[in-house]
Design a protein around this nucleic acid. Structure first.
Lengths: 146, 146
DNA sequence: TATTGTTATACTCTATAACTATA
DNA sequence: TATAGTTATAGAGTATAACAATA
């Protein structure tokens, strides 16, 4: 099939790329993202991550969430504007800091988070289907070293 | 520092995300991309990958390069238009197929590829500094299973 | 002075859909 | 019919630079 992604096609020379651990991680990621998009309806990976993090960290504000996700405040704004337009997330004025907003999931946001979580669990199990439990544990340990 | 990315902040609850191997790979990637951007001047990761692949695979055409990189033809066009505007890549009519273009690096493209390669090697060594040779070998083997 | 949220702006990455020339 | 390149268009993700309100 022309649209299936082949991780390391045998007929292609990768040159320096074949030596780079960063590129090996990137190639794994390409396939994982394609499976995520095909598996999870209506949410992108960053949107899903934001829903989980907001739910798991009551009282978190925009700037802190941006730091955690590795993006700056302006990028976080765009992401939250989208979640807000989808009626999944609410900005609530912080009681302790008049500059800040506290982020909360709406009832719809909770429902969406729960439904997407099931799809994402299935997706993650599918991409990891060729690894044993021990291999997954090793992989997780090694990835923490970056 | 407010601008340094912390991979798994201890004060943050990751909920389901902490169980997903796909998210563990994604978090490693975030830091790696930030280091790449800070290390390599003038080229993004996809642009650099394209330069290497074009150089290592003489006679490759646009569609095939897109397949290898995991993007469709239209996305490949945009990427090649940029490399072309930078005078790094040339489209040459294929002698064997009048529909196709063969991709070639210009002299400037060769120079840019060589200089960026040195920067990227240093970048890759830096991000992998906490892993042993054996660990890198294991990681590479496990990543191929996705 | 530093931080939070915000807006304006711009660039990169990627996709879909439709067209043309050729296979 | 199918494929290679192309164009138009759109949306997501991300960044910099500036500003007002608050800490």
């Amino acid at each position: 099939m022309a649209d299936s992604f082949e991780q390391w096609p045998a007929d292609i020379a990768f040159g320096l790329l074949g030596d780079l651990i960063g590129y090996a991680i990137r190639r794994a990621q390409i396939g994982i993202y394609k499976d995520f998009d095909a598996s999870v309806t209506g949410l992108t990976p960053p949107l899903f991550a934001a829903l989980i993090l907001i739910d798991a960290n009551p009282g978190i504000n925009q700037s802190r969430l941006g730091q955690v996700m590795g993006v700056n405040r302006a990028a976080m704004m765009a992401l939250l504007d989208r979640l807000s337009a989808l009626k999944l997330v609410r900005r609530v004025p912080s009681p302790s800091d008049k500059r800040a907003n506290v982020l909360q999931l709406t009832a719809l946001g909770q429902k969406c988070r729960a439904e997407a979580s099931a799809e994402v669990r299935a997706h993650d199990a599918r991409i990891a289907r060729n690894l044993t439990t021990a291999e997954l544990k090793t992989l997780r340990r090694l990835l923490k070293k970056f």
